[in-house]
Design a protein around this nucleic acid. Structure first.
Lengths: 340, 340
DNA sequence: TTGTAAGCGTTATCAT
DNA sequence: ATGATAACGCTTACAA
């Protein structure tokens, strides 16, 4: 069994020292005479030499790899974020790998340990089972994705769900809706208080009757959306009058509600308007397509990547920064004027 | 700036040699007296020592990490595969990271180079820009995901799209459909010949009039599906009679077709049945929900992971194996008896 | 059971 | 511009 060639083999073959080979390989400013460089490159090709990144990392303490740690690779939110991250990191020659915890805290911690064991130069994470202090203990460049006030020691990049809820309600109000239901999730991650706050605050400001009686909390999945809708429209519900519009905390819930409305023969948007949040792929495939608040996913990825780079380069002694990017209303077919 | 403690620091603190510390850390069968072990563990805790995985890898030539390289993290096909892979690898204490090339061959090759530079112990890949010989040149344990006949030197794990097409057609035939259209993709990856072969072969065997005139090829996206449907139903089409059912090469196309049918006021499934392939999340959110051929995604992941483990452990001199897992019909609302 | 010492393949420092 | 040499932090024979 032939072992792989090392720079020593290359050096011997090229008749130079291994320092010279190293200089050629790294290809930075190191001065090497053109003829020497060529000899080395020929030796590399002849031997089929491959640089050993592990050995290199041991010396340089750099892996040129960062980890993007997410709880759920099936959530359509992440691909666009990832694209933003990769586009930024690519320019720096830094590879991005994904760590998918699948909502298992154990797995998340294992990935973080990998990072703190020198396998990654930095981490972008949307944490589910790790708190501020645990992250700090890793003493590693880390940027959080998500608007997390519970991580005071870290940079965060998130989107403005509070503002998004208000924006959505404002749009519905402009269509003449006054009774607007809210379907909230009760899920694996923290409940979306920001949406509820936005809902209640908007009610106060606008004078619309937005209160707890129009709010229903369900499991954070497709079936939950249907349950929420049936509850809000149920004749037995303790609602003075049923809502003419519904805001859902995310698109999955909204799509569940939309399908339930079809099953109940409630016309959307004729008799009921529905607005989601996130703008996932499935939102455009329904009939009618779903009106929703799109999160700036790609921009979140870019911004987070940029901040991580700063932390990785600068000593990173600046105060933590919090970035909250605005969401955008995507008007589609599931919303229309309020029924009279 | 305090450097991180190493096993040498731990050894000094515990009053033992670094070999002993190493033995404790690895926690395998190495014999260490209980008292010694405890002293070492206390030293580790006291110093906040973290194992340096890079240095360890340099010695052991193992990273206990494998790479799952995919072209498109936004494709809902992958999350389930990933889950299968992770569930198998977890048991072996092997971490799985994702490499997402975003359909950029350059990126795929960069990731593969990372792997061949000793960063990963093995690779699971659905290649888009790398061929059999290039993969072989990496001399690395590799298993391919997908039914790829063009990689004779590698194990492959895929699903039976040929059989799936036949199964779907058989179901439609059992509902009384005789004129069945096929919407194929012309996409970033190789075209799905297997589906077309299944379609034509089934036509021969069954005597149904399945021929090229009922086949349309479109871009492999949501809009493409709509175009395909409009073409097949168009009065100006050179079709003797329009199809009463449509098989689409994947769910995205099928969903596009379904939405286009709504727009044309064609009742599904009353006037037209539609069958997709893959069973992505969006397939259950439409009205009616999409009948589709589900790929055994999770099982593909498990199987591929298992084979990769064999290659990583065994010298891997066995002949390449090809596994083709069967698909499953998911009957939902988009199919019904043929209109008379 | 524990210690000694020789690497693993690279980079970095210091000469030349 | 190039070479010798000492790290980097760990694992692993082999010896004790």
């Amino acid at each position: 069994m032939n072992r792989r060639p090392t720079i020593i083999d290359v050096a011997r073959q090229a008749g130079v020292s291994k320092s010279t080979v190293s200089r050629v390989i790294r290809g930075d400013g190191a001065s090497v005479r053109e003829a020497t460089r060529r000899r080395v490159e020929e030796a590399i090709a002849a031997l089929g030499y491959e640089h050993n990144a592990v050995a290199s990392s041991l010396r340089t303490e750099r892996t040129n790899t960062i980890m993007l740690a997410i709880p759920d690779i099936a959530n359509p939110f992440w691909p666009d974020v990832a694209r933003g991250v990769q586009d930024v990191m690519d320019e720096q020659g830094i590879a991005v790998v994904f760590a998918n915890s699948d909502w298992e805290g154990r797995r998340e911690k294992a990935f973080l340990r990998m990072a703190s064991r020198n396998r990654f130069d930095g981490v972008l994470i949307n944490p589910i089972a790790t708190d501020n202090d645990e992250l700090r203990a890793l003493s590693l460049p880390i940027v959080l994705i998500g608007s997390r006030e519970d991580f005071p020691d870290f940079d965060t990049v998130g989107s403005d769900s509070y503002g998004a809820a208000c924006q959505a309600l404002d749009y519905l109000a402009s269509l003449g809706h006054r009774r607007i239901g809210l379907i909230r999730g009760r899920g694996k991650s923290r409940p979306g208080y920001s949406r509820l706050r936005g809902y209640l605050d908007y009610g106060h400001e606008s004078g619309l009757p937005l209160d707890e009686s129009y709010v229903v909390q369900v499991n954070f999945d497709f079936e939950g959306g249907g349950q929420g809708l049936r509850h809000l429209l149920s004749p037995s519900a303790p609602l003075p009058q049923p809502p003419t519009a519904i805001l859902a905390a995310n698109d999955i819930l909204a799509l569940g509600a939309l399908q339930a409305a079809h099953e109940l023969d409630v016309d959307v948007p004729g008799a009921l308007s529905i607005v989601g949040m996130d703008d996932i792929f499935a939102a455009v495939t329904t009939t009618p397509p779903l009106t929703t608040m799109a999160k700036p996913k790609y921009e979140i990825g870019r911004k987070a990547a940029g901040m991580l780079l700063e932390r990785m380069e600068g000593g990173g002694q600046e105060r933590p920064q919090r970035h909250i990017l605005p969401c955008t209303l995507r008007k589609r077919g599931s919303t229309g004027p309020a029924a009279l």
